[in-house]
Design a binder for these strands. Sequence first.
DNA 1: ACCTGAACACCGTTCAAGT
DNA 2: ACCTGAACACCGTTCAAGT
Lengths: 232, 232
Amino acid sequence: MASDPAGRQSEVRRKAGRPTKAVLELGRITQTALKLVRQEGYQGLTMSALAKRLNVAPSALYNHVRSKQELLILIQDHLMSLVEVACFDSKPWDEAIQDWARSYRDVFAHHTPLIPLIAVQPITNSPQTLRIYEAVARGFQRAGWPEDEIVNAIVALESFIFGSALDVTAPENIFDVGELQAEAPVISRAVASRETRFGRYTAAPAFELGLAAIIQGLRWQLSTLSEGRSTI
Amino acid sequence: MASDPAGRQSEVRRKAGRPTKAVLELGRITQTALKLVRQEGYQGLTMSALAKRLNVAPSALYNHVRSKQELLILIQDHLMSLVEVACFDSKPWDEAIQDWARSYRDVFAHHTPLIPLIAVQPITNSPQTLRIYEAVARGFQRAGWPEDEIVNAIVALESFIFGSALDVTAPENIFDVGELQAEAPVISRAVASRETRFGRYTAAPAFELGLAAIIQGLRWQLSTLSEGRSTI
DNA sequence: ACCTGAACACCGTTCAAGT
DNA sequence: ACCTGAACACCGTTCAAGT
């Protein structure tokens, strides 16, 4: 045994050859990778570092994932399971979107390197992503959205959510204008004015403003879209 | 001379030591990097590959940029100069936002690896980013937006734009449900329904729906916000 | 089937030596 | 000041050998 009952690494080195019991499985790989990311960030997530935590040679990982990219997809799918969608069964459409959007943003705010990946990842056989889409789509359907606009609405919301997740980790000084203040008087005053009201930069007010706006806009679109259809 | 008058590489190798005239400058580095990205993608943008195109040793680049990260910021600032903001001087607020948002999204759609970087990059001394913010802020100001909400509105729009830029490169099959169709009937029908109307997946309809919604929502917010202020 | 250990073809970056 | 060339400390990934 290379690890003690509590799962801690030991100094005992395993010999080459097939162990009596599989040392790795996808679940443990994903969990360990996630813990590594939480402690060291994505910059610290290397195949070597992960292998070390699993008390295994780096090459052993390739018996379970085809590439690091595939590992990232495993992490992503796991994170998707943390996104809240129960609200769509218990709340009206527009309120449910708020709960869902906030939890979605919060989950990925500290996993921004995954976001460019998620955005283009086919949902085929990605059960957790599908679970989210199904719940949201049911919410839209129940609200009376035309079926052929549901996907567009979800994508639009996701775009805003992903962009907002990236903003969460912005530094406090992101809007410091610096030396060029004289050439940008309007934005300079707007920045100062924002700071007086909200203090040093945080992503929350912009997210809430945008979320309220987009939901308001979707509500308005729903009324005109369904009017358009009922006259057919 | 290591390159002929047309700037093409030649086989002549420069000796060590300071050349009579600086071989590199930031402008040429940025332009060459951009050309490399357009031809080979970000995966092909390595310090070695860039140095080779500049007919220079990789280490020479470090006389001009502190790191690859700094190179990416140079590229980003250059791309910002391609974003259209003249519309804010010639069109009403809400129409100008549409032109601006579309051009912003189009510029970064094929530079998605930069997006996580831009989103957290301080604007200090980044003249092109400041130029954009100033123009948009003036548009909002003229429309009567409360000064302390202008930055929030810009950030909200940018979040949507960045998220939408990521969506542009999504593959056609991104919404293929695959084997799990039985467990996700509502989204499956929505996907089929979208396809009948819009064909294979493209990002455009979702972007236009979301953009219309968010502008509609901001318009509504503007009216209630300014009402709120006028009663003070 | 699933591990080890060596090897491969890269990365970004540093630095002494050169003019 | 600004280049070359060698070197460093990594990457992700492949593969023969082992049980």
